[in-house]
Design a protein around this nucleic acid. Sequence first.
DNA 1: TAAATACTGAACCATCTGGTTCAGTTTATA
DNA 2: TATAAACTGAACCAGATGGTTCAGTATTTA
Lengths: 115, 115
Amino acid sequence: MVQYLNPPLDLSFAALSDATRRGIIDQLGRGDASITSLADQFQMTLTGMKKHVQVLERAGLVVTQKVGRVRTCKLGKRGLKAEAEWIEAHRKLFEARFEALDEIISEMKREGSDD
Amino acid sequence: MVQYLNPPLDLSFAALSDATRRGIIDQLGRGDASITSLADQFQMTLTGMKKHVQVLERAGLVVTQKVGRVRTCKLGKRGLKAEAEWIEAHRKLFEARFEALDEIISEMKREGSDD
DNA sequence: TAAATACTGAACCATCTGGTTCAGTTTATA
DNA sequence: TATAAACTGAACCAGATGGTTCAGTATTTA
């Protein structure tokens, strides 16, 4: 058996699998925001929004800081590097597979039906 | 409120959030495989593996075809384009944010403490 | 044609998810 | 100092997830 463990990828892909959370990232790209303002924008309770932000925080995509009674959320420095790398590496795998198929198909066309 | 809906991204990011499923993609990059061979490699019941493959199939990342009693799994033509695009677009957002911060910091250093 | 192989579907299970409400606590503001 | 604002935590809920077992069906193979 082969082991494929990468907890940070698990957490960040899971975080990105929800449209609201992708929207929060979008929003934070336009400027830092409080839990309240995010909750307003996404028409959700404060508690609900807090949970989403926590998911993003555990994935390292967002960092928060509480000053006074306001918790400000911003994009994390960690960014999406690891995710981009996984995706790009595997895009190549996908493409390589199709090239291999294309070769086989061309081969078959050249030789008639074989194998 | 803003609406951020993109069902395919939901499905594919969710599919990618599991290490076993990322491993299956890895494996299919090295060649097509039956449910049985995947179940062996990942030490899982056939039924369990079938579910994982179904998740990947619904996300469009894998296609399968049953010939005789064997179901062969291969990487889907759809690939990871949409996912790569989302990630790249948002990596830029992350970076832009930090550049903005850097500017503010430099500004503050130049002018002493202000604002 | 009998036995083995490969899959499939239903049912179950514990845990996680995406939301809620309600009852606090802490911090500003009038 | 009383009230409002912003958050927090616990508890609940329905439904999804990641696995399992068990009982089939369909297809090879001996």
